[in-house]
Amino acid sequence: MSKRETLLEINNLRAFAEKTGEPRSQLVNSVNFRIDKGEIVALVGESGCGKSVTALSILGLNAASIEYESESEIRFHDENLLQLSDRKLRKLRGNDISMIFQDPMFSLNPLKKIGKQMTEALLQHKAADVRTARQDAEKMIERVGITDPKRQLDNYPYQLSGGMRQRVMIAMALLCKPELLIADEPTTALDVTIQAQILEIMKDLQQELDVSILLITHDLGVVAEMADRVVVMYSGQVVEEADVYALFEQPLHPYTNGLLTSVPTLEGESDERISAIRGTVPSPQELPKGCNFYDRCTRRTDRCKKEEPLLTNHGGRNVACWHPVVEGVKDDERTAIRN
């Protein structure tokens, strides 16, 4: 991996929700990762693992009841996004960092024509005149594979199919040429054949515009197709971070390993049983003292119950586990890797 310029860096992100008369729940606990320029980073995890909270905190879009610990930091262009004023954040959103959601209707105004919504965003951030804005919108919408862009711009969102809407969303998100695109489960609601189209468009555009993408998903297939680097989260924590090839070749954290082996493959004809991860995710109000994955782990020892493993470098990759899955590595070698 060649060294690239870092675009965004998340350091010690801790977020919690507190409601009166309830134990405080830790939503995100010590999340650390970076996104380089022009890189696709996948943030993987199951519902409630904190991946969406992390993504929304980048844009300052979390609910007001969610608080961050003081040492939390999200660095973007020498600024800590967590401390930015609302006005500055608004300027940032859509311009430097934009976001697409699982449900396009979440960010499309149902009462406005597509073209109007797109040109408005352009006029707001890039201050072009209406005509060039319209032309830009047309170009972009054609770029995401919508035929007859002139006519489509005069449609309302409800007149489009799910796949078309997601295309429009991508076009809108990339219209102002942002440096970072946050894509929160962008294809989860779509059918497989449409998903393939959308992923291809995203990848092409990413290369063309050299935008970085933070891709949030639970689908390991999508991760393998798209990402350069993968960040795996489990109940509020980053448990593993690695280059995509290395991760799928040999996952180090037992959770990542469990995820990979619990998906049935399309290859082969074997009827062998998939190994499911036992149990369920602990509730954010009653996290265990040691490792959060303790209850479900197959490699656990007493140490895991007592001490919380931190994210540490492990042969050029990061993993938060006392007993990473590295087969054939003896104990003395393992300590060497962990330096």
Binding site: S161, G163, M164, D191, V192, T193, I194, Q195, A196, Q197, L199, E200, D219, L220, G221, V222, V223, A224, E225, A227, V244, Y245, F248, L260, V263, T265, L266
Partner: peptide, 24 residues
């Protein structure tokens, strides 16, 4: 349909895939 399924193996990237045009 089979070729469109994203595979959990990055080494399979760049395989020949049939990507259908258009919507249902």
């Amino acid at each position: 349909l089979l070729s469109a399924v994203p595979r959990p193996d990055p080494k399979l990237r760049g395989r020949d895939r049939i990507i259908l045009k258009g919507d249902l």
